[in-house]
């Protein structure tokens, strides 16, 4: 494997976004790119990451190799990379370590780290192709704000999606709160759009602790997409350049 990223920033942010949810996971490398799928310890949420080969310049992977990595250790190594550094990830055929090289843009500093790999026997889950009843795209920062505000009211949020908009409702000991985002197109700045497509109305409850955890990915994408169907896990997607993505799935709470 040899994969070079123009800026370490992307990889730093992806790892930062998932490291509190999953601790040890395999980065599955093959000729289509680097993928990761892992559940949290409670088996409530699942993270699915894809960094396509096109995300890297260049990308080369001759064989399928799983790189079993302790994300806490990887975070320690990635601290040494500046966001604008060129990052190269390298690994041998049957590796004991993964090699990470950080180069300053002005080429006068090269840092090289070897991170020990782990043998991780990870369950792989089949995620069914789902035609979601409702999908809602919104500014990622708005979603983060809503989740963190409502977490102060309650540990759960009910998300209701209709043609009129998407409503987040929390009921707690101190009182209730709700936030509605209505569909709109911002002609000046499409990053501010709220876009809803719906085949049938949806209402589901989710743990805000997990949702606020997913929002650690906010810096990766201007927009976030929520995909919902009644009685299936919510998908929260942060789309990245070159068809790469970071997706979180969250099992619903049993409603009232």
């Amino acid at each position: 494997l040899e994969a070079r990223l123009e800026a370490a920033d992307l990889f730093k942010k992806v790892v930062e976004a998932i490291k509190d949810l999953v601790q040890h996971c395999n980065f599955d490398c093959n000729d289509s790119g680097i993928a990761l799928q892992a559940m949290d310890n409670s088996h409530v949420a699942l993270v699915s990451m894809m960094l396509t080969a096109d995300t890297f310049t260049p990308f080369r992977c001759d064989r399928n190799i799983p790189l079993g990595i302790d994300l806490t250790s990887l975070t320690k190594v990635l601290r040494a990379a500046q966001s604008s550094d060129i990052l190269t990830i390298k690994s041998e055929d049957a590796p004991d370590v993964v090699n990470l090289v950080f180069e300053g843009k002005d080429q006068d500093r090269i840092s090289e780290y070897d991170l020990k790999l782990m043998d991780i026997d990870q369950e792989h889950l089949g995620i069914p192709d789902t035609e979601y009843a409702a999908t809602a795209s919104m500014p990622a920062a708005d979603f983060k704000r809503i989740c963190s505000d409502l977490l102060l009211i309650s540990e759960a949020v009910s998300i209701e999606c209709t043609k009129e908009g998407i409503t987040f409702k929390a009921e707690g000991d101190i009182g209730n709160g709700s936030v509605t985002l209505r569909q709109h197109s911002d002609l000046e700045n499409s990053d501010k759009n709220v876009d809803i497509s719906l085949t049938e109305p949806v209402a589901l409850s989710f743990s805000l602790k997990y949702l606020t955890g997913f929002c650690k990915a906010t810096g990766l994408s201007n927009q976030v997409r929520l995909c919902l169907s009644n009685d299936v896990p919510l998908m929260v997607e942060y789309a990245l350049a070159n068809n790469s993505y970071l997706r979180f799935y969250l099992a619903p709470k049993i409603g009232d």
Binding site: M39, S42, H43, V44, A45, L46, E123, H124, L125, G126, I127, P128, A156, S205, S207, V232, P233, Y249, L250, A251, P252, K253, I254
Partner: peptide, 14 residues
């Protein structure tokens, strides 16, 4: 986690 479903109830092991 009261009232919380598991992701394993929806996605099957491959």
């Amino acid at each position: 986690l009261k009232g919380q479903k598991s992701i394993l109830g929806f996605f099957s092991k491959t």
